[in-house]
Design a protein around this nucleic acid. Structure first.
Length: 439
RNA sequence: GCGGCUAUAGUUCAGCGGCAGAACGCCUGACUGUGGCUCAGGAUGUCGUGGGUUCGAUCCCCACUAGCCGCCCCA
């Protein structure tokens, strides 16, 4: 039988890498809490229609990258239904917002999520078919202030704080406004018209994009095309006054808060639901996938999927890429966020007759929140020492002498000091830093 | 979905048309209760899978699968 493997584009995360993931998530939760965000957990699959209507029928995600299947009816009363593994989480959050009538509370909803998403793309470094995102959404009825540029700026400022606390060095915030959906449509037409003349002089990809997705031409990286792109109409000029004012207010607030950003008039995002503010935080050294996170405002999303008017703004961080970035950074930064955590002590029972006593001792110590590993009485003491030295700060020897006297032998690996410690004092003794090493 | 590169020990990798190699890691070493550094031994394996060429293929050819890089697109 062929050995089973994780399917293409999926992978296992093992210790100690999972430790890094946990720490990143813990930092994110801590930062979100300071900004009064609460966690939301939505199902991992949804009705296909949610993504078709929310994300956009014509987007690549929906048209060719979703894991979709027909969930057959099992009973006469049941209807078959097309289901899809979520390719992103914003649509699910907005669906939940509508379903639970959160708008009726009149309160601004600040929700964050951490979880896997699924897209059937060609796997690459930092791009998996099951990938993880940390994201957050600020959404609510207009009366709650959900349309305010202050919310855009707050989210961006929070992200700057988060990246700083994660010790990501050298990030860049790129910022743009794509205007209202009407602005966007108008601009698309203007662009399409302008491209009729210019596109034939550009690269093959651009000639194709000019027809299929004009906004994408702005993203072209071919050097020779840059002058043509520079000369194309700017989306900023197509914005109505309200959108211009909104964007100016966002940048003013960022300036006041001292959050650095770079205006990028070419930053258009792939998802249909984005309006007004769009942004990306990028980081060099990630190759073609240089975006660490992206997001934007989506004032019409709720209505697009049948809900009330509920403007919002949100973002999603690609966790897989964030981890890659951290792993690629100078060791100092990595150490501050992820250090290996050895056990406080390794208990070495001498003889299988001491195994039961070892478990009892471990239980006692673990109740004091000490990290304890237990050896096995069948091991020779030499072997116990070798193992213990690899994974613990100290070894506690539990032999017949110790069992009788109640005084345990403890050796500190760093200093090499060996001590006799009464059982009642052991927990306190092990809590103490092992010679310069802090717990 | 398209193009290029890659696939050998637990890991990182060398290698060659004729019995499979290194480093690190792992196991064992005066069989009595003492690790690290050193020393002496030892085991690593369907050479990604399936076909083909050949007296003989881990090596050459084809297909498949997977990974990496790029394109498309995107967080």
């Amino acid at each position: 039988m062929a050995t089973l493997k994780a399917v293409r584009g999926t992978r296992d995360l093992l210790p100690p890498e999972t430790e890094l993931w946990n720490r990143i998530e813990a930092i994110a939760r801590r930062v979100f809490a300071r900004y009064h965000f609460g966690e939301i957990r939505t199902p991992i699959f949804e009705d296909t229609g949610l993504f078709a209507r929310g994300v956009g029928e014509e987007t690549d995600i929906v048209s060719k990258e979703m894991y979709t299947w027909e969930d057959r009816a099992r009973a006469q009363s049941e209807k078959s239904q097309s289901l899809t593994l979520r390719p992103e989480n914003t649509a699910g959050v907005v669906r939940a917002y509508i379903e639970h009538k959160l708008g009726e509370t009149g309160q601004l909803q600040k929700l964050y999520y951490i979880g896997p998403q699924f897209r059937r793309e060609r796997p690459q470094k930092g791009r998996y078919r099951q990938f993880w995102q940390i994201g957050a959404e600020v959404i609510g009825p207009p009366s709650a202030g959900s349309e305010s540029p202050l919310r855009d700026a707050e989210v961006l400022e929070m992200l700057a704080t988060l990246l700083d606390e994660l010790h990501i060095e050298g990030w860049t915030l790129e910022l743009n406004s794509v205007g209202s959906s009407a602005d966007r449509e108008r601009y698309n037409n203007v662009l399409r018209t302008a491209l009729v003349e210019v596109a034939p002089k550009m690269c093959a990809d651009c000639q194709r994009r000019a027809v299929t997705n004009p906004l994408r031409v702005l993203d072209c990286k071919v050097h020779e095309d840059q002058p043509f792109i520079e000369a194309l109409p700017k989306i900023g000029d197509a914005l109505d006054q309200a959108s211009k004012d909104h964007f100016a207010a966002v940048t003013a607030a960022l300036d006041a808060a001292g959050v650095p950003y770079k205006l990028n008039p070419r930053l258009v995002r792939g998802l249909d639901y984005y309006t007004r503010t769009t942004f990306e935080f990028t980081h060099g050294g990630l190759g073609a996938q240089n975006a660490l996170l992206g997001g934007g405002r989506y004032d019409g999303l709720s209505e697009a999927i049948g809900g009330p008017k509920a403007p919002g703004i949100g973002f999603a961080i690609g966790l897989d890429r964030l981890v890659l970035t951290l792993q690629g950074q100078p060791k100092i930064a990595l150490d501050t966020i992820c250090v290996e955590t050895p056990c406080h002590a390794y208990i070495a029972p001498l003889g299988e007759g001491q195994n039961a006593a070892a478990l009892a001792l471990a239980r006692e110590l673990r109740k004091s929140d000490l990290r304890i590993e237990i050896g096995d009485g069948s091991f020779r003491l030499k072997k116990s020492f070798e193992i213990a030295n690899k994974l613990a700060w100290r070894i506690v020897i539990l032999g017949e002498d110790e069992a009788k006297s109640g005084i345990l032998t403890v050796k500190d690996f760093l200093s090499g000091v060996q001590a006799k410690v009464p059982r009642a004092e052991l927990s306190a003794y092990l809590q103490k830093p092992a010679d310069g090493v802090s717990t």
